[in-house]
Design a binder for these strands. Structure first.
Lengths: 210, 210
DNA sequence: ATCATTAATCAACATCGTGTTTATTATGGA
DNA sequence: TCCATAATAAACACGATGTTGATTAATGAT
């Protein structure tokens, strides 16, 4: 009853979505016009305005949906669980689930993070990761840093996000499970150890909970 | 003789530049119109086209100049020198010079890398760093990686670039010398050691030259 | 199956920014 | 001074926008 969806609305909305996606993969996020979208969707131009305010509005809605689908996974991350998985040398399931969610929206994200992409969207994902890492650190607050804490956050979010982008841009040759394993290793042991350039260092006293 | 610069050309070009910069810091790189720029510069709209093809062309020229000024410093980086400085616990001069060059163009870069920024420009700088790191690695080629080499590159370029962006976005509270010190530490010892979360690990055999 | 409701279409409109052109004015360098 | 060139002003066609009103078509409920 409360769910009343007119087939016509759903149909044209899907046509517009498909048209947008094909244009997005072709020419990136710039120079997207209502005229182009509606022409490709074989829909009257005026009809577009029955669904969206303008092109940025349409993009915003899709961005929100994709972001939310990933955010809902990210907030389930548990630092201790991830560490336990890393010690047992197995991928952390929630981490894998996140990569699967990314794979699901690969085309869209590839366009949004590609050369002609949307920097504000990248910032949004980085902010999500930062909040998450900050949450992790609260369990084991660092002190006596050789480099300020906010730089630690910037470093880690950018590094992880960079690997994610590289995965998407290079055609997702690794499975989500593999990527999850990479990420877990690097987060817990640092890049040099994870990449096999150094042995695992002995755990220092400063990383022990009080 | 060969250097013949009409004062009028130089004057209007500077007026256009100043107008562009003030608009850039106000509203980011999007929705920059010729009309807005020439209005703010108090210059006839037609005059703009005597200097630039269109707005992207004007941006491109400035982007090229700034990029080149930084690239010319980056290519002077020497891996061994940087390591030597790190061991003596002093900032690597060329690294400091790079940060000074960034500081020189802070306003422009802040706009280009901000929320409404230009992702293609960010990619360009990351590609520069990637080429540089790749060059470094050639002296000490890694083998037996737990994670593929291209992910190592993606990780490192993104991490370093992320710190750089954070420095710019947070108002450049650290001096170029301090930032150079941060960077040198992290590149050589990894983030966990650099941030003081672990002790310096013993150097493994895999990181020794043959 | 009917019918009122809602969606989609079509055509027209004013608006805005673009890039170009022409004629005119002014400024600079020699 | 005087020539070359830069800047101005006004006009133009073009393309995309966002809106409107009238019309046709499809849908869901009864």
């Amino acid at each position: 009853m409360s769910e009343k969806i007119d087939r016509r609305r759903a149909r044209t909305k899907q046509l517009l979505y498909q048209a947008l996606m094909s244009l997005l993969t072709e020419q990136g996020v710039e120079h997207l016009t209502v005229t182009d979208i509606t022409n490709r969707a074989d829909v009257n131009r005026g009809t577009f305005y029955l669904h969206y305010k303008d092109v940025p509005d349409m993009l915003e809605q899709i961005k929100d949906e994709v972001f939310e689908s990933i955010r809902s996974e990210v907030i389930q991350l548990d630092f201790k669980q991830a560490m336990a998985c890393a010690d047992r040398n197995e991928p952390y399931p929630i981490s894998v689930a996140i990569f699967e969610q990314f794979a699901l929206h690969a085309d869209f994200l590839k366009a949004m993070f590609g050369t002609k992409g949307d920097l504000s969207y990248a910032h949004r994902f980085r902010a999500l990761m930062a909040a998450n890492i900050y949450e992790k650190m609260r369990y084991n607050p660092p002190s006596d840093l050789a480099v300020p804490f906010d730089y630690l956050i910037a470093y880690m979010t950018s590094a992880n996000f960079g690997m994610l982008m590289h995965w998407i841009e290079s055609g997702m040759k690794q499975t989500p499970a593999q990527m999850g394993a990479f990420m877990t290793k690097i987060i817990n042991f640092g890049p040099l150890v994870a990449f096999g350039l150094r042995e695992l260092p002995s755990v220092s006293s400063s990383s022990k909970p009080h």
